[in-house]
Design a protein around this nucleic acid. Structure first.
Lengths: 341, 341
DNA sequence: GGCAGAAATGACAGCGCTGTCAAATTGCAG
DNA sequence: CTGCAATTTGACAGCGCTGTCATTTCTGCC
């Protein structure tokens, strides 16, 4: 039948417990013994039973990735993160479960309780916007389940990975300034998402640095969706003096802006420059292709998971890493119209 | 501590084994006993330990969703399916694992072996294009692991869910004919994908029904990607007589066609009608919004999983269901230019 | 060389459930 | 009522691993 730990023990001439120690990378095993055991495991193609390990021990070698099923960020974003998380899990011999949460439903916390109780989840990866859900985070702490966050709003007491979105937004808008734009509008994301705050802050920073005034009329609320981008752009187009560039807080809204521009007969980038944030596949599927900020989502999923692993393996506290951003200058941005004041 | 099966047994005054029987919905339990046990479970908030069940029994209550990580169909498509699968799993008290496979890598089959051996996977959901990977299917059969497919190429000996893509494609192209088009081109998907074959077949059917000739020059190879759509469209635009409508085998390629049309100064739909297949979010993020065929991916994931559950629960053989399609007529299609011959 | 203390290993029970098979209970014909 | 089969329930071992604690082996040092 199946090769068991006991079989490996017999083959190596040690006790099952010692093989177990090797398996769990416990330190108190003589190097020579470890080598022999590992060789036998390899040779016999031994594969530990997760069920037995979970039952006997306290660990399940299971990680859950939580995501919000209401305010769904672009699914491509989540899919990429999931890919990265999975990669890191596999590398560490962990398994992953995905767990969509409907935060709008009253007892979504119950789902978390059930998940943890049922499966003895060892650790959790939290994706935006759940990263800022205090009820969720409190619950995870109560359960004593370590978690790593991707782009969390708060930077203290949190491990995981982030990108300096404020700097990125500042750089993006700075680029617009460099192209000659003076009237730059911004479309906000959903109010309480960290992404929205940072991107707005970066926008303001860039204006300040360029000595441009901050005009509240040029900042319109959006919801991160294509449709909200269309509406926001229409609103901006109703201003007495039109902006020459619009920085949308994400790509979907930027796509909406381009639609609205088309609608109004504005040619991008000749009459209006448009840029977004995230660099989703959509960015290169628009015409013209969208200038945006590239965010390495896959990599971020992987890094956050690796930090979680540090904790799970008891190797340390885990860090909040920071990954670099890249500006993707494409054809949706250009110099402002020459007749612009 | 944790409420165990034994605790429920004691509270009900029956043996643990009887509680176990109730838990597993075994038939040989008197109705009155079952009710009492279920009540106690509910009242004590009993949650069975998957680890213990997996260890003692032969079942793991785990389902794996396999997908191809090379020829990745649009990630939104997979995300939707995943959502549906997850929903059905939860409803049946099963858990789900996701498992990306790199079929191009020599030993991807090993990953499947490992998955099944490690986790004692009870059943598998196979997504396109893995549904047609004979090596994979053979392996699953060797392992004796039941599987349900989503849009499989073969219709025999397979359970899961499909859509009549050929009929859908025929209807779509038929719609173009009705609008007055006579020169309708088609952009193929990746050669060995079922989706490509069916959509081509439907295209041919519609031409035949309309009494239009099939012109091989109007059928160009694509790869399901945006870029390949651009290239294919350029090729079509090099024909001595241009088509008045292009039916691309999926939305991404249709988006590419629209880009290429723009490039060439063709106005959609005035000069050229464009339509796709799948109704991904992209379809409504284009300008003009894309006419396409809606495929209920989420629903399909759910239905396929439910069929798998039928088998896992020993309630039957499972069926290959068929779901209806819907034509989404949007603004990328219209009457052909009046000067068209 | 002998001894304390550290390092390495092992014995054993038990995690929470289910499979097997035996026992008790029920239903029903005679 | 009895007897026999069908139905319902229970006793018990054991799935494959790890925690606890005892035991053995190895150090360095007087």
């Amino acid at each position: 039948m199946r090769v068991r730990l006991e079989d490996v023990a017999r083959a190596t001439g040690v006790s099952p417990k010692t093989v177990s120690r090797v398996l769990n990378e416990e330190p108190s095993v003589k190097e020579s013994t470890r080598k022999r055991v590992l060789a036998a495991m390899e040779q016999m193609n031994y594969r530990p039973s997760p069920a037995a390990r979970g039952l006997a021990g306290s660990r399940s070698f299971l990680v859950a990735m939580l995501y919000d099923n209401n305010d769904n960020p672009a699914s491509t974003y989540l899919a990429e993160i999931q890919d990265g998380v999975l990669e890191a899990c596999n590398a560490n011999r962990y398994s992953m479960m995905v767990c969509p949460l409907r935060t709008r439903v009253q007892d979504f916390i119950r789902r978390v309780d059930a998940l943890i109780a049922d499966h003895h989840i060892d650790g959790v990866i939290v994706t935006p916007p759940l990263t800022d859900n205090v009820a969720l985070l409190r619950r995870l702490n109560e359960h004593g389940v370590p978690h790593a966050s991707i782009s969390p709003l708060r930077r203290d007491e949190t491990i995981g990975v982030r990108m300096d979105e404020q700097q990125a937004a500042k750089a993006m808008v700075g680029e617009l300034v460099r192209l000659g734009h003076r009237r730059i509008a911004h479309i906000l994301g959903i109010a309480d998402h960290g992404a929205s705050r940072w991107r707005l802050a970066g926008y303001k920073d860039a204006l300040a640095e360029a000595g441009l005034p901050f005009d509240p009329d040029y900042v319109v609320q959006g919801q991160f969706t294509f449709g909200s981008g269309v509406l926001a752009a229409r609103e901006l187009f109703s201003r007495p003096i039109l902006p020459t560039a619009i920085f949308a807080a994400n790509d979907d809204m930027a796509a909406g802006v381009m639609w609205a521009a088309n609608e109004r007969g504005l040619k991008v980038p000749r009459d209006l420059s448009v840029c977004g944030f995230d660099d989703t596949p959509l960015a290169t599927q628009l015409w013209p292709p969208l200038t945006t900020v590239r965010q390495p989502s896959r990599e971020m999923g992987k890094l956050a998971t690796e930090q979680l692993m540090e904790v799970l393996r008891g190797r340390g506290e885990g860090l909040l890493l920071q990954v670099p951003f890249t500006l993707q200058m494409r054809e949706s941005t250009g110099a402002p119209p020459s007749d612009a004041t």
